[in-house]
Design a protein around this nucleic acid. Structure first.
Lengths: 265, 265
DNA sequence: TTCCGTTTTTCAAGGCATTTTCAAGTGGGC
DNA sequence: GCCCACTTGAAAATGCCTTGAAAAACGGAA
């Protein structure tokens, strides 16, 4: 999971510059443009780190820093102050308000980035509970997903999946029985939502089918809902009877074919 | 108890200036004037914080920093770099070597003091002591690691390993069956987490494979998980049957090759 | 100190797995 | 029957991993 950074800064250009650069470096950045909103977002997201400008509307940075330190819910979050005030006095009062680091404008984005990393490295606190955990085992019916290895356990047999195949299956499994729209898949698996890339989804669905379906031509589990998306239908309970054999047989046939094609090659 | 600070700095005036000021502020300061002594004192005192100059005789600061980070006895100690090199590149490489803060000479003693306090403040909050003991014998399946000799017992035969090979294998063995991400390996074996050093991991994995795998071209034990990391898969119980012979044979072949190449050289 | 063998890091070239893209064919829904 | 969405097959592009070799750093001995 990307580290979450809260940027509290009133100057819009600066905000976009910094958040752009950090997002590009693999951080999840939330922004606030005044002290009040900043405090609210800090409580809402409990970010892994806070970048705090000192000259803020509503509540100034030093005050906000002290408040964050007093509230136990935010007390442990590293704070990096980011300000035009470069005097020693300013820095001293910044650190005395509870800051962990202090960077003077104008600063170098590279330096900001490494300082952010250094702070995250040291704090490294146990996650307070991000719920949608992509690293936990997810299981339903005959399907179990093991994020650790990008692997699916399918009717008691491990199936190796590629990164995207795994994410796609994960996305469908979380909504098994529901039809999942392409746009939603794109947002969740690929991280963006354009209009045209539905093409790639199709290809990956096909890959999944060849790996999981007994007969990829006639999908039993990963179904197409015409004009709407794809839907994962997994059998449970009594429906599972007999399927095991069908699967085993199909697997055998496929392995035979594989061997044949290898032999001819 | 006064917090103990280790100052590693070759310039005598600077040393006395800094240590005088810090002692006056209530710290217990130990000094070293080159990298070797610095490392020795770090182990001897295990200080609460290290002030590290970069331009040092014997061992330069960056190297020393990396060493301190990968020795578990000093890995958790906050390091503040103190140097005349103020370029962004220098700072980036400083932080990438594992520094927690970076101050450019000439600096203000007040600022140094508050930064020191900020680091101590944070490291107190941080959880102390991951108990994973690198000095105990660790064993699973056909593999046993003997830390005191940097040696692996692999199917009843000792295999000499270098320091890093040992640490790497140790890291994987502790998580056998799981895929270990490069970033985690870097953090655990090297002590820092830059972006690009994945290269060296690969080379060391290769070294391990040539020492352990029957056929390094087709890894049976140290597997790569494309785009995710490496995974140590060790056989147990019944799977061990027959493997012994395969290994022995492979070993013989390799020894033959070695002899041949020596003979030709 | 200087030299030499070992360990570790770096570099460039090549290979392979994955992912994307393209074009032609199939089949459902109106 | 027609259109459009979906499927199929295969090729192109991308990115990760391996290989081989050389440079750099390290540690110990002369």
């Amino acid at each position: 999971m990307k580290p979450c950074i809260l940027l509290i800064e009133d100057d819009r250009d600066m905000r976009e510059l910094v958040s752009g650069h950090l997002e590009h470096s693999g951080f999840d950045v939330q922004s606030a443009d005044d002290g009040i909103k900043g405090q609210a977002l800090a409580l809402q997201y409990s970010p892994d780190l806070i970048l705090l400008d000192l000259m803020l509307p509503k509540v100034d940075g030093l005050t906000l820093c002290q408040r964050l330190r007093r509230d136990e819910r935010t007390a442990a979050i590293p704070i990096l102050m980011l300000t035009a005030l470069g005097g020693t006095k300013d820095k001293v009062s910044g650190f005395n308000s509870g800051a962990d680091d202090y960077l003077t404008k104008p600063f170098d984005l590279e330096e900001l980035q490494v300082r952010v990393k250094a702070l995250l490295r040291r704090s490294e606190r146990a996650p307070v509970g991000t719920t949608s955990n992509h690293h936990e085992i997810l299981s339903y019916g005959p399907l179990t997903l093991v994020p650790e290895r990008f692997e699916a356990i399918w009717f008691d047999r491990p199936v190796r999946l590629t990164h995207l195949e795994f994410e796609l299956l994960h996305c469908l499994l979380q909504r098994h029985g529901q039809t999942v729209a392409p746009s939603l898949i794109l947002k969740e698996v690929w991280g963006y939502e354009p209009d045209d890339d539905i093409e790639t989804i199709r290809v990956h669905v096909r890959h999944l089918r060849t790996k999981l379906e007994p007969d990829p031509r006639k999908p039993r589990f990963i179904k197409t809902v015409y004009g709407a998306g794809y839907c994962l239908e997994l059998p449970t309970g009594a429906q599972l009877e007999g399927l095991q054999d069908v699967l085993a047989q199909a697997r055998q046939e496929r392995e035979q074919k594989d061997q044949e094609s290898r032999a001819s090659a």
